[in-house]
Amino acid sequence: MTYPTPDRRRVLAAAALGRNAHTSGEVVSGGVHRRGAAPAYGDAGVSAGTDEGTRAHPAPVRAVVGEVRDVSPHLIIVETPDGHEERLVIAPWATAWRGAKIAPADLPQGAGVIIRTLRDGKVAEQIWSDITRITGTILSIVADGKDQVVELDCGPHRGRRSIRIPYRASGRIQVRHPKFEPGYLFDAIGVRGEHGAIAYLPATSQPAYRATAVPSPPPVYGGAQSRLSGAVTWADTFDEEEHGASYPMLERSDTGCADSEISCTGLPYLSLGSMLTIRNVCADRSATVPIVACGCLAGRFCDRCVECDTSPRGRIAELSPISFVELGGDLTKGCFNALVGLG
């Protein structure tokens, strides 16, 4: 007997149903296999970023996570969480974000960064520094001078979080959060600071209902559900270099969480360890990622992503930042339209 783990589940399910379980794993991103990040599963039913394989694959994207050791206008040196040093050339068109767009050379030493790279991870194209996503239910709002301090309930797995909305960002955030009062949902993107997170950008248009009044999914007609279409977002509750997703429709007995099994879109039941094939239809990239957490809060958002087109209502999954970037997502935009299937 072995201790039950998501990896073990994949092996057992594959044995029972005659699938191939690739426990050593490959992930496909932008049509290129990359080793060792997360296991592929099932048929390894991974599309290479195009419908029929006839169009050209988009250039592969690799994300690098770490801490800035040194930066100049043309070179950035980053120490990754496993202690390696990555030296990346900064592309002439590259930009950085740290609460606002800045020149990459202005990044402070010691700042945490996630970098979208090109050319096998040698050229930095886009840098996000100390970026964080603040998603939760508003518990209280307290004024602190001209700023506002908001206490959020970020779900049973993430606990409570206190964030600051600076005066200069409050108008931009509140215009997308018309119900800026306790009991309603909040979703913003900001920067991790010494004294907590600071919100700068709204990540969505706030749903008009209270967090406890999530609409029921629409009735399903027609045949069996063949694929899911909707918005995929990101969350920063994953480990730094973790590839994975959180998914709302996990059984409560599986997650030990009373807030799962809630979604305003008709999602099928899956479990921790199931593999999702996610295709970013905006960037035409696909990847297979494991479900590693419960997306209790994602299921409460019945919003749409308008990244490249208007998506159907509802969030299907939350990705880890590195998976989100490698699928071609822009962390400051917060979502992309996706087609999701079982990997």
Binding site: V46, S226, R227, R279, L339, G341, L342
Partner: peptide
């Protein structure tokens, strides 16, 4: 026709 796009739940 539906299966032309990746992301099928059932095979």
């Amino acid at each position: 026709r539906g299966a032309a796009e990746p992301g099928a739940l059932a095979r």
